Simulated assay, not measured.
Amino acid sequence: MKLLLDSCTWYGVRNALVAAGYDTVWVGEWESDPGDDEILAIAYRENRILITLDKDFGEMAIVRGSPHAGILRLVNLITTQQSQVCLQVLPQYGEELCAGAIVTAELSRVRIRPADRD
């Protein structure tokens, strides 16, 4: 599973995901932040699930119809909880994410918006 971590996620999430065997790229390591539109476009082109704290990506996908390869939004989590939730959600909901779902995950709650099927 290929992942793209938005720069707003904690760097430790990258380390935890790489250690767990995920192909993970973190925007925070790029020379500059290209902005949300380009981040979502890159994730889509590279077939990477986007992991973010930012609700704007879901709005871009749902309201504007921007293509994506799955979005995992982390909500109300301290930095160390971000890794924990990713490592729980990705194996459990990876199939849905890879199919283009938008998953919103909190410490004790997960909501899934399945991919639109045309």
Rank of each mutant, 00 (worst) to 15 (best):
R48I: 04
T52H: 00
G35P: 08
A69W: 05
D118M: 07
A61Q: 00
R117G: 02
T79C: 10
T79F: 13
D56N: 12
D37K: 08
R14D: 04
Q88S: 15
H68Q: 02
Q81H: 12
A105K: 08
R73L: 13
A115S: 13
S32R: 14
R64K: 11
I112P: 06
A20Y: 05
V75R: 15
R117K: 11
A19G: 09
S32N: 08
I62C: 00
P114H: 06
L107H: 11
Q81C: 06
V27S: 00
R45L: 04
S83Y: 04
Y44G: 04
V27W: 00
Y44Q: 14
P91H: 06
Q81L: 14
V25N: 01
V75I: 15
V27Y: 00
G100V: 01
D33F: 14
G94K: 11
E95L: 14
M60P: 05
H68A: 01
L97M: 13
Q84C: 10
I42C: 02
R109A: 14
Y11W: 09
L5A: 08
D118S: 11
R48S: 05
A61N: 01
T80M: 12
Q88A: 14
R73I: 11
T80V: 14
M60A: 07
L107Y: 12
L3R: 03
G100S: 05
R45I: 00
D54E: 06
A105C: 13
T24A: 11
G28C: 08
I39R: 00
D54V: 07
G65T: 03
E38V: 13
K55M: 09
L40N: 02
R45A: 09
T9E: 01
L3A: 06
L107W: 15
D37W: 04
D23G: 06
A41K: 09
L74D: 05
A99Q: 15
V110M: 08
V27P: 00
A101G: 10
E46W: 00
L40E: 00
I51A: 01
A99H: 12
E46H: 08
P34A: 04
E96N: 13
L50S: 00
Y44N: 12
T80L: 12
R48Q: 10
V85I: 14
T9M: 03
L90D: 11
D36C: 05
E31Y: 10
L50H: 00
L50K: 01
C8G: 12
I42H: 08
L90T: 13
I78E: 05
D56C: 05
R113P: 07
V18K: 14
V27H: 00
A43Y: 01
A101Q: 04
A115W: 03
A41P: 03
Q92E: 15
I78K: 10
L3V: 11
W26R: 02
L90E: 10
V63D: 07
R109L: 15
E95N: 15
R73K: 14
A16R: 09
V85T: 08
L74M: 09
T24H: 03
I51Q: 00
V13Y: 03
C98P: 04
M60G: 04
E96S: 10
V63Y: 06
D33M: 08
G100R: 02
D37F: 06
W30A: 08
